[in-house]
Design a protein around this nucleic acid. Structure first.
Lengths: 179, 179
DNA sequence: GCACTATACGGATAGACCATCCGCTTTTGG
DNA sequence: CCAAAAGCGGATGGTCTATCCGTATAGTGC
């Protein structure tokens, strides 16, 4: 990929900056264009779909998610590692509204994001497996199911206030505990 | 309210029938009109907003929900009553895609629906309170929080397959259990 | 600095969808 | 059978999305 032309790089930054001021789950690319001070065409050239723009916005959070997974994998106690990771994952979901869409999408994603996603899922999967082998997490859930449950809890928190976060994540963790 | 004219009653039924073939969370009133064989204007006269139409579609489920709440309230064992009710509530949510929107809405609802909703919430609330008093459900959740958790689990199930339903509801119930 | 080409820009506009309004039709009741 | 009330339908204006292409600008070799 050839490096961006100077004006293109400027536009891209302006677009991202404007997009950050919006809810990633309800992006109006026309609005973003106006607020960024560029034409609509420019937005669509840089990001072919709204999803592509969300992906770019979410990249940092996705990166932190990978970091969380790696850090947790290094912890000795499987149960503690799983719990810490799950809490951190939910927090990231709540901070970055676009994370869920990006993680759940199955197409239209860049190579880069696809690689990150698969690395994250593998890491979190083995984290879960370890906790299950240690007998601290119920054995009848798959990594994908845990992922969907986290998305469900994120959804539930968003239905009310952020105050609910602690009770909800405690409830999920208690529900996932073996026995 | 004066009784409907014959053609109006016929149109209403055709509209409801056509609407039932659609996902309540994504209703195109124009499509409904075409499939019902009536003009768009007719749809909008019968149901001022998409939400009003969903409310009408959901009425039966809402009624069954009230029934569930009443039946559960009659059970002697508080823990069992709560668990049975919660399972039934989730099943109703999964069957009727519009239930969540209707239950969570705070405006634009008919007198009739508002009354049903408040009755349901009261009943389910006292069900929860009983279970908490008996020490079988964690005391730090409110009825509204439980409602949001159920919506979150419904959401999580919809993200995957209906197969997940049992594991997910078990997880939620385990999480809500005291200790 | 200049000319030339590849890139990028902007916004007019086509297409899809929503919801209203009003002239015409049907039903109802006398 | 007739008049008035009630209902019907779809043309229409408004909003939003996404594309296309004529114009403008950055980069490049001289």
């Amino acid at each position: 990929m050839t490096p961006l032309r100077a004006d293109a790089a400027r536009s891209r930054e302006r677009i991202l900056e404007a997009a950050r001021r919006h809810d990633p789950r309800d992006l109006r690319l026309n609005d973003v264009a106006r607020e960024a001070g560029v034409g609509v065409g420019t937005v669509y050239r840089h990001f072919a779909t709204a999803h592509a723009l969300v992906e770019a916005l979410t990249f940092e959070a996705l990166d932190r998610l990978a970091e969380v997974a790696r850090t947790a994998a290094a912890r000795p106690d499987p149960g503690h590692a799983f719990e810490t990771a799950l809490r951190a994952v939910l927090d990231l979901h709540l901070e970055s509204g676009g994370l869920q869409a990006v993680l759940l999408a199955n197409e239209d994603m860049s190579e880069e994001v696809a690689a990150l996603k698969s690395a994250i899922l593998t890491e979190l999967g083995s984290l879960l497996e370890r906790a299950q082998a240690a007998g601290v997490v119920r054995p009848d859930v798959s990594p994908e199911q845990v992922q969907r449950l986290v998305c469900g809890i994120e959804y539930a928190v968003r239905l009310g206030t952020l105050q609910d976060r602690d009770v909800f994540v405690d409830t999920l963790l208690a529900g996932l505990r073996a026995h």
